[in-house]
């Protein structure tokens, strides 16, 4: 038990939490933007995977991690436009479409990896690049806070900035207002001349961009390679984080941090004498518990509301 506390209350652990929260946070913000427009993007897992591989390939061929990042984001846009086109224009059930995209990404990345790197597991033979780590001036000198906050991958800072950007975008821009209007009441939005389909398309694209960032981080920051199914359910954990965060940027950030904590715990506990299988379950169990707690509180509140309504009536 002492060991456990030593692990959690160390600056290394604090650093690790931010490090593993990054992909979840990107994906959760991606889920948030599409959800606010009333479209569920469950293809985030596959989108991140596709972006991760694209980033590795392009950074290896151009020698620049930033070009890799650019193409990872383009891959994210590509994936989400497929989903948007099929679900909004061809009326594919968006959940089935998302499932299809996830399956496609899971196998398709291995397919492409084999063509490019002649390996079906890992991109080790590609000389891919890593996005830089950044030492924060001044903050890095502060004890405790410095080692936790400084020297992260640039994408980790991007993910934190993205929380603010998404907040600003949704609540302070005309497009954000339209997205929220469409999500809350598509018929009303339609009646004032907003094209629901167009707004939902745009929000899915934005969702793809954020998932693209998350994927790029996985293969060019979190680790320096692409491996088969490396996202390991983070795209789905993100859906839970977004739901727990009640579809608000700040709430989503806090929920992502919670799941990041579970993920970091699972990584650090591997040194303790607990069966590895149980340690690896931690993030997933936390997600289910988190989802259950969130859902139970939501239904209680809904229940209270209906009671109040009945009383009024």
């Amino acid at each position: 038990m002492d060991n456990l506390f030593n692990i959690i209350f160390s600056t290394n652990f604090g650093y690790a939490v931010l490090r593993v929260t990054t992909p979840i946070l990107f994906a959760a913000l991606a889920a948030l933007i599409s959800d606010r427009a009333g479209v569920i993007n469950i293809s985030l897992e596959g989108t991140m995977l596709a972006a991760a591989l694209t980033g590795v390939i392009f950074s290896a061929y151009t020698g620049s991690a930033w070009v890799g990042l650019l193409f990872a984001v383009i891959a994210g846009i590509f994936m989400s436009s497929i989903l948007a086109y099929f679900s909004l224009y061809l009326k594919t059930d968006i959940i089935l479409g998302g499932i299809a995209l996830n399956l496609m990404a899971s196998g398709g990345t291995v397919f492409v990896l084999y063509l490019v790197a002649h390996d079906k597991g890992i991109s080790a033979s590609l000389a891919s690049k890593v996005l830089p780590q950044i030492e924060l001036p001044l903050i890095s000198k502060i004890p405790v806070i410095g080692p936790v906050l400084s020297n992260h991958n640039v994408m980790t800072y991007f993910s934190l900035i993205a929380v603010i950007v998404v907040y600003y975008f949704l609540y302070r821009t005309p497009l954000g207002l339209r997205i929220r209007a469409v999500g809350e009441n598509p018929d009303a939005a339609d009646s004032v001349g907003i094209s629901v389909r167009q707004i939902q398309f745009v929000s899915l694209i934005a969702s793809g961009i954020l998932a693209g960032f998350g994927g790029a981080y996985m293969s060019m920051g979190y680790v320096s390679w692409f491996s088969r199914d490396m996202t390991a359910g983070r795209g789905f954990i993100a859906l839970a984080a977004e739901a727990m965060g009640m579809a608000t940027p700040i709430g989503t950030f806090l929920a992502s941090l919670l799941f990041g904590f579970a993920d970091a715990l699972s990584n650090s506990l591997q040194s303790l004498r607990i069966p590895a299988e149980f340690v690896q379950m931690i993030p997933y169990i936390t997600t289910i518990i988190g989802l259950a707690i969130y859902a139970s509180r939501r239904t209680q509140r809904a229940g209270a509301k209906t009671v109040r309504k009945e009383v009024k009536a």
């Binding site: 469950i42 959940i95 390991a232 359910g233 789905f236 954990i237 859906l239 839970a240 739901a243 690896q280 379950m281 997933y284 169990i285 997600t287 289910i288 989802l291 259950a292 969130y294 859902a295 139970s296 939501r298 239904t299």
Partner: peptide, 14 residues
């Protein structure tokens, strides 16, 4: 509690 079976079942697989 109307918790999304999609997410919980995916987590359950792991």
């Amino acid at each position: 509690w109307k918790a999304s079976e999609l997410v919980s079942s995916l987590m359950l697989n792991y």
